[in-house]
């Protein structure tokens, strides 16, 4: 396979923050395909944000190689790489640059030389998409926690990156807001040839991903489809993680003697299976 099919590739990557410091990533290899949605989960300090920072050249690995959209990430390519990678950081305060919401969202587009007409149109579109049109002239630091996250997301959506990385970007949103925003993002990803990488502790959020990478102590511990992953509840608990409510209920049902065969991903799936069992008796 040529590396063009894969939008992101980590080849045996190891990283530490300093020569005296412990290795934070140890021999990590994985790929993200074009148009794929990959979720990364893992305990606090397992290396998730470090992976994100390596992807857009904020950090460089001591060992191994990283490729993004066919380019090797290194000092002389970072400006090109950053054009392809859009990232929302864990704390949105770290990425606000404009004095108003609209300046902030426009900033990335200006940098990439978007024509003015298109810029205004997109500004409008993304502020609508995240439900923040009324806040155009607000200073970013005067927003509530969840509002800041919405603006940070709008700013990266505006530049249509090839790879979109959301590092716990919805952690401060109410459940409805989180669902709406993820729907918007997923919709965009499906329509626009975008690879999506979401780093999250929200187990509900990974259900829709095509693949889940589980990090543990700096190593790739598992890579699987959510359905497969959720059948490993005990192992996940052992490394500080868990499964969503519906998987946990399915397990309890199995333990009380209900022969559930398909690991459910949502309420409908479990109710359907219970219904089938019910009608048979």
């Amino acid at each position: 396979m040529s590396s063009n099919e894969k939008l992101v590739e980590f080849r045996n990557v190891s990283f530490r923050y300093g020569a005296e410091q412990p290795w934070v990533l140890k021999n990590c290899s994985f790929e993200i395909d074009r148009e794929e949605w990959v979720a990364i989960i893992g305990h606090n300090g397992s290396g998730k944000s470090t992976i994100a920072k390596l992807m857009n050249g904020l950090l460089f690995p001591q060992e191994g190689e990283i490729y993004v959209a066919g380019k090797k990430v290194q000092e002389d390519t970072i400006w090109d790489v950053r054009k392809d990678v859009g990232m929302v950081f864990q704390n949105p305060d770290n990425q606000f640059v404009g004095t108003t919401v609209q300046d902030d969202v426009a900033f990335g587009m200006e940098n990439r030389g978007f024509p003015r007409e298109e810029m205004l149109q997109r500004l409008d579109d993304v502020l609508h998409a995240v439900g923040m049109v009324d806040y155009r002239l607000t200073e970013p630091h005067r927003l509530s926690g969840g509002q800041k996250q919405r603006i940070a997301i709008a700013s990266v959506l505006a530049v249509s990156p090839k790879v979109l990385i959301l590092d716990e970007a919805t952690a401060m949103l109410d459940p409805r807001g989180r669902r709406d925003i993820m729907q918007t993002v997923a919709h965009l990803q499906a329509n626009k040839d975008v690879s999506l990488l979401t780093i999250t502790h929200d187990l509900q959020e990974i259900v829709q991903a095509d693949r889940v990478i589980v990090m543990n102590e700096g190593q790739v511990w598992d890579e699987s489809h959510p359905r497969e992953l959720f059948s490993k509840q005990d192992d996940l608990l052992a490394i500080g993680l868990d499964v969503p409510f519906i998987a946990s209920l399915a397990k309890a049902l199995k333990q009380t003697g209900i022969p559930i065969t398909k690991e459910p991903l949502n309420h409908e799936e479990l109710l359907e299976e219970l219904w089938t069992l019910h009608s048979r008796t």
Partner: peptide, 30 residues
């Protein structure tokens, strides 16, 4: 949703998943 589909009246009592599973199993097992 369970109550709608199975015409039962299981209440919400801050029960654990285990307790809910037991109640559901009781219904399914007739």
């Amino acid at each position: 949703r369970w109550n709608e589909k199975f015409h039962t009246k299981l209440p919400f009592t801050k029960q654990s998943e285990r307790e809910l599973a037991t109640a559901i199993t009781a219904v399914l097992k007739g």
